[in-house]
C-alpha cells in the first residue's frame, strides 16, 4: 500500500500546469510504476490519502478529480 501511495503522490506532484487528475489517469500512472497494483488497491490508497489530508477531491458535480492539497485551487474560489 505504501508504495502505491508514494506513486500517487509522485504522479500528482509531477503535473506542471495541471493540478487535478481523473482516477483513471492516476491508475495508469501507478500501474506504470507498480505493475502488480490492482485498481481496488489504488482506490483504497487514494481514499487513505484523502483521509490523511494529503489529497483532496475536486468535483464539478458530474465528475470527480483528485489533487494534492495545497497545489492549484484548494480553497473556496
Amino acid at each position: 500500500m505504501e508504495d502505491i501511495k508514494k506513486a500517487i503522490v509522485e504522479f500528482l506532484e509531477s503535473g506542471k500546469t495541471k493540478t487535478k487528475f481523473y482516477f483513471k489517469d492516476i491508475e495508469k500512472a501507478v500501474k506504470d510504476k507498480v505493475p502488480n497494483a490492482r485498481t481496488l488497491q489504488i482506490k483504497k490508497a487514494c481514499s487513505a490519502l484523502i483521509n490523511e489530508g494529503v489529497l483532496i477531491y475536486y468535483s464539478t458535480g458530474s465528475t470527480t478529480m483528485y489533487g494534492l492539497k495545497g497545489k492549484g485551487i484548494t480553497e473556496d474560489h
Partner: peptide, 20 residues
C-alpha cells in the same frame, strides 16, 4: 453561476456540489 470546486465533507467525494 460557477460550478464545482473543493467543497465536500471530510472523507466523502460526493453529496456536495459546489456552486458560486
Amino acid at each position: 453561476w460557477k460550478h464545482g470546486g473543493i467543497v465536500g465533507v471530510i472523507g466523502y467525494g460526493g453529496g456536495v456540489i459546489g456552486r458560486y
